[in-house]
Amino acid sequence: MIEVHNIHKAFNGNPVLKGVNCIFETGKCNLVLGGSGTGKSVLLQCIVGLMKPDIGSITFDGTMFTNNKVDIRQEIRRQIGMLFQGGALFDSMTVAENTEFPLKMLTPNMSREERRDRVEFCLKRVGLENAGNKMPSEISGGMKKRVGIARAIAPNCTYLFCDEPNSGLDPATSIKIDELIYEITHEYGITTVVITHDMNSVVEIGDHIIFLHKGQKLWDGNKDEILYAQVPELKEFIFSSSLVRAAKRVEDEGGSLDQIRNEPAREV
């Protein structure tokens, strides 16, 4: 579990985060939802230690991360896996070499054979067992995201952070990436934090959601509760999506959210 306590962050006197308090639960897909410029990425950078908050603190499973000793912060960082927005694969490395990279950096005592076994396991887990020798330029955008997930979980991460994992992907591929993140989170009991503005992801995998608006947390709940939230800013945000309007209509008619996947598109 990750706990964020009263985080403030400003740049040149302009506040970006204004006293954010939230909890990211273990074994769940925790989504940070909001439009562009709401402070989502800044919050992520504060949590993983790429940026220091002006005020506030962050704890990982009860261990203070902010302002703690360097060795303690480094130990926590070793347990963090990152899926970057653009994949951030090394162009000069094969898929297998990209996946192996954090093992070389973070697990120096692991033998070459052990690293190879771990890479094979992780690539198989994301459905890329036959792509290890390919270069990033030879695979699709969705495959690159899956390589990014394999690389993130290779060191047996405890915490997984995903920055806009569906960015640049078509809807069908986006759903597959969402499902993979959800499966891995629940299978391995990882504390997963997904930064997103995509309401489709909320409907698919939102175990726990916080909504940021202008640097403040205005709401938290889950994917079943969000359609009935009474926060005006959140209602304006979520019902801009035709999928969510359809989901709300199906729910109101006594159906299930899963039905919308098989429904023909129509104006709501």
Rank of each mutant, 00 (worst) to 15 (best):
R245V: 01
L218H: 10
G27A: 10
V147W: 04
D220R: 01
G81R: 14
I7Q: 05
C122Q: 12
V42T: 13
N156A: 15
K235P: 01
L128M: 12
T192M: 00
L212A: 11
R78T: 15
G189M: 09
G81F: 15
E164Y: 03
D61N: 12
G39R: 04
I58Q: 01
A131F: 08
G142K: 04
L50S: 02
G62I: 08
D224N: 14
R118K: 15
A154S: 15
L227W: 02
L89E: 10
H5Q: 14
M93P: 06
D198P: 07
E233F: 07
G141Q: 15
E120D: 15
L169N: 12
L234W: 01
L43C: 07
L123S: 08
A247R: 03
L212Y: 10
V147M: 06
G62L: 12
D220V: 00
C122I: 09
E267L: 10
C122H: 05
I177N: 01
Y188F: 15
R115H: 08
N98K: 05
W219C: 13
A265I: 13
Y182D: 10
E114F: 06
I7A: 03
I190M: 10
M64F: 07
Q259T: 08
I58F: 04
K28G: 01
V4P: 11
I153G: 03
R73D: 02
I175V: 09
L89Y: 15
I2Y: 04
S140D: 11
F237E: 01
F237M: 00
G255H: 01
